[in-house]
Each structure stands twice: as structure tokens, then as C-alpha cells.
């Protein structure tokens, strides 16, 4: 089931929380939803889950508009702070969610056991949710979202509060699920997006500022290559001038004067020209490293203004 969002808008009073955004998510795609706090991520997710009404625009799930049909049963949702009934035992809670999501009566026990197995809740299944650690509570949250085997999963910061091992487990679980389902997940942890998601969507102040894979975002954001080089056998200033005059090179920055380390910004690959320059001048080349733009930098570039 694919998701199509067209011109989605939401106001909180006079303030536009989501400003006519449009995007589509294909079946089997995991979309990473990024943005600073208050950018409109959660609001957008709440509108997709039909918790909030739309002020303008439309959301279509598998071609059907949420404004015309009740499509809640196709969605599994894990809200931001994972609110759960503290006084309810895990097993009963999952059975309750299954019943509310129209799982047939004779299948409820099977589904609950299945979810307990998949989410690793077996030891804790008879405890009250309030007695669980944060990691286990998060698993209960995931289990309730997936209990009716929904075609769409909306996960709002699914890995907050988990330890590194659990994060890897949950990521693998999401990746595994994402093969047949449509997943939208929001997070603040940038490496997580690269590790889990097929596509990244960055929003800021209610508007989409970037959309693409991690690789395309990198090339779009900079449009040029960064190369670090370290030389020997020359003085810093003349090397600086020589590097600056190379073709393709846009900007040279001295990173360390004593070690003669430079960062070179260029249109396209400059390594070859730098090497040739060193050979020609008889300088010793100690380092020549292409630098990758970090996702963090792209994120900061797009969302700081």
C-alpha cells in the first residue's frame, strides 16, 4: 500500500505547522523523516494516522483518500512518547489492541504470541506495563503497532531510550518489516537514518527542504568535492598559491599551517591535479583523502537559517 501526500497543510491557530507539503512513499520503502524539533514531523504523522484532521490537501493510502474512507485499520502507529496503559499486563494489552484492530477472535492469541516472540517480550509478558524498563516498553509499543499486521507503519522516534544493542535489534526488525510494508519513521539520530532508510525526507518549518537517498543528498548539498591533502618539502604559502591556481579548484583552506595540511574544495575530482602538481614541483605527498560530507552537515545546512 503506497502513501501519497498532496499539499498537506495544518494550522495551529495562525501558525502554519505543516505548509502544503507533498511526497509519496512506495510500498516496500522505508522513509526517514528528519527535521529539527517543531518542524512538523509529528504533526504530519498524526495526520497520516488520522488522529488530526487535515486543514488542506489530501492523504491517499493505496489510492483511497483518508477524507472519504476510514483507513485506520491499515496503519500501525507508534506515537512519540509511547503512551501505554501502565496498569495493564503486557499480554492483556496486546490482546485488547488486537481486538480493537479487528483481528478475528480465534486469531488474537496467535497474533499476540507472535508479536511477543518477534519483539522479544516473552520474559515480561505477564508483568504490568508500568513495571517494565523503557526498552521493553518501547517493544510493547512496537508490538501494539504491528499486532494487526498493518500494511503501513508510522513510527515516531522508535529507538529513543533504547540501549545500543536494542537499537540494532529494532533497526533490523524495521528493515525486515520494511521489505513488504510501507514504513515512515522519524528520528533525530542521523546515522540511524542512513542505516535503516531507503530514502530521506528533511522538513523544516513545515516545508520539505530535501528529498532523496543519502547519496543524492550529499551530492546535491555540496555540488563539489572536498579533498584533504598534506604536503612536505615546500612552504605553506607557496603551496597554498599553487593549489589555488589549479584548474577545478574553488577554494583552498589551510587546516594546519605547521603540518601543511589543506582542505581543497573543487568542482569535480581534484586529486589527480594535486598529485601531478606535487610530481611537477617535487613535493612529497603525505596525505590525499577525499572527504565525505557528513549527513549532519547537510542537515545543519538545510535547517539552520
Amino acid at each position: 500500500m503506497d502513501i501519497q501526500i498532496e499539499g498537506l497543510t495544518k494550522y495551529y491557530g495562525p501558525q502554519k505547522a505543516v505548509d502544503s507539503i507533498s511526497f509519496a512513499v512506495k510500498t516496500g520503502e522505508i522513509l526517514g523523516f528528519l527535521g529539527p524539533n517543531g518542524a512538523g514531523k509529528t504533526t504530519t504523522m498524526k495526520m497520516i494516522t488520522q488522529y488530526l484532521s487535515l486543514d488542506d490537501g489530501d492523504i491517499r493510502l493505496g489510492g483511497q483518500s483518508v477524507k472519504e474512507t476510514n483507513l485506520k485499520r491499515y496503519i500501525g502507529y507508534l506515537p512519540e512518547h509511547n503512551p501505554l496503559y501502565q496498569e495493564m499486563p503486557v499480554y492483556d494489552y496486546l490482546a485488547y489492541c488486537a481486538a480493537l484492530q479487528d483481528v478475528p477472535k480465534d486469531r488474537i492469541n496467535d497474533r499476540v504470541r507472535e508479536m511477543i516472540r518477534v519483539c522479544g517480550l516473552n520474559v515480561e509478558k505477564h508483568k504490568n506495563i508500568g513495571e517494565l524498563s523503557k526498552g521493553f516498553r518501547q517493544r510493547v509499543g512496537l508490538a501494539q503497532a504491528m499486532i494487526h499486521d498493518p500494511e503501513i507503519l508510522i513510527l515516531d522516534e522508535p529507538t529513543t531510550g533504547l540501549d545500543p544493542n536494542q537499537i540494532v535489534e529494532i533497526r533490523d526488525l524495521i528493515k525486515h518489516l520494511g521489505k513488504e510494508k510501507t514504513v515512515i519513521l522519524s528520528t533525530h539520530i542521523l546515522p540511524e537514518v542512513e542505516a535503516t532508510c531507503d530514502r530521506i525526507l528533511i522538513i523544516n518549518r513545515g516545508k520539505i527542504v530535501a528529498d532523496g537517498t543519502a547519496t543524492t543528498l550529499r551530492s546535491q548539498a555540496q555540488g563539489n568535492n572536498l579533498t584533504r591533502t598534506r604536503l612536505k618539502g615546500t612552504d605553506t604559502d607557496s603551496a597554498f598559491k599553487a593549489l589555488q591556481s589549479l584548474p577545478l579548484v574553488k577554494k583552498v583552506r589551510i587546516e594546519n599551517r605547521d603540518q601543511q595540511r589543506f582542505v581543497i574544495e573543487s568542482n569535480g575530482e581534484a586529486s589527480e591535479a594535486i598529485f601531478a602538481l606535487c610530481v611537477q614541483q617535487g613535493w612529497i605527498l603525505l596525505e590525499l583523502t577525499p572527504l565525505e560530507t557528513k549527513l549532519e552537515d547537510i542537515f545543519r545546512d538545510l535547517t539552520m537559517n
Binding site: K46, T49, Q50, Y51, N70, K72, R73, I75, Y77, P79, H81, P83, L84, Y85, Q86, C97, L100, Q101, D102, Q144
Partner: peptide, 13 residues
């Protein structure tokens, strides 16, 4: 207050 209403209302009810 606890936000469980959000979870309840996003179920098929």
C-alpha cells in the same frame, strides 16, 4: 494527560 487517547483513537475505533 498521558497521551494514551492518541493511541486509542488511531486504532480502528
Amino acid at each position: 494527560k498521558t497521551g494514551t487517547i492518541e493511541l486509542l483513537l488511531t486504532k480502528d475505533v
